[in-house]
């Protein structure tokens, strides 16, 4: 069937069997190979994309379910400024902190991290609580390389950049 969806800000039309996984249509038909397959069972999070603003496993979405909806993949995280690509705060933080090694989990982690940062889910948390929360929020993203510590560091850093640090300082000044 003909499926129309908005992918990373652009209207896309694909001709695909409705039962195919969003994951496969993204990778094979739209050549957006940033989204990875780990397990195909909803366990690992490597295939995470945003569907209508919520992070979901694209291996568990039938592509027909996306008709008329909005999909964002890791390729859509960076902002385009002229012909320059400005990486998202979570992407630069992952690079800077060493939160990416082999890279298979990274697109999924970046999507979830961006969601955490943009929604300010760590707002009002102290550092220790924030670390616990990040681990809970990333529980659906399995990483075989980093041991998670550096990923958590990166998410906290990115969240700080987008506002947490400033609020934390303010709350320390008024005990």
């Amino acid at each position: 069937m003909k499926i129309e969806m908005n992918v990373n800000g652009a209207a896309r039309v694909v001709e695909a069997s409705p039962y195919r996984r969003l994951l496969d249509v993204l990778r094979e038909d739209l050549r957006l190979t940033g989204t990875k397959e780990g397990c195909g069972e909803g366990e690992c999070g490597a295939c995470t994309v945003s569907l209508d603003g919520e992070t979901v496993n694209s291996c568990l979405v039938a592509v027909a379910q996306c008709h008329g909806r909005t999909v964002k993949t890791v390729e859509g995280l960076a902002a385009q400024q002229g012909d320059k690509e400005i990486l998202h705060a979570v992407q630069t933080a992952l690079v800077r902190c060493g939160g990416a090694q082999c890279g298979i989990c990274t697109p999924g982690i970046a999507m979830c991290a961006a969601d955490i940062v943009e929604r300010e889910l760590l707002h009002d948390q102290d550092l220790q609580q924030a670390r616990v929360m990040v681990r809970e929020l990333l529980a659906g993203n399995i990483c075989r390389c980093t041991g998670y510590q550096l990923i958590v560091d990166a998410v906290i850093e990115a969240a700080s950049e987008v506002g947490l640090q400033r609020r934390e300082r303010a709350s320390r000044r008024t005990p």
Binding site: S17, R21, D24, G40, C59, L60, V61, A62, A64
Partner: peptide, 26 residues
């Protein structure tokens, strides 16, 4: 009969393709 697919679509690319899909999602 499909909603969020988190039970039905596990490993779906290795499963029998259904004859039809009634999508209740959203």
């Amino acid at each position: 009969l499909l909603a969020g697919g988190t039970d039905l679509l596990v490993d779906s690319n290795h499963r029998k393709v259904p004859v039809g899909m009634l999508d209740l999602w959203r």
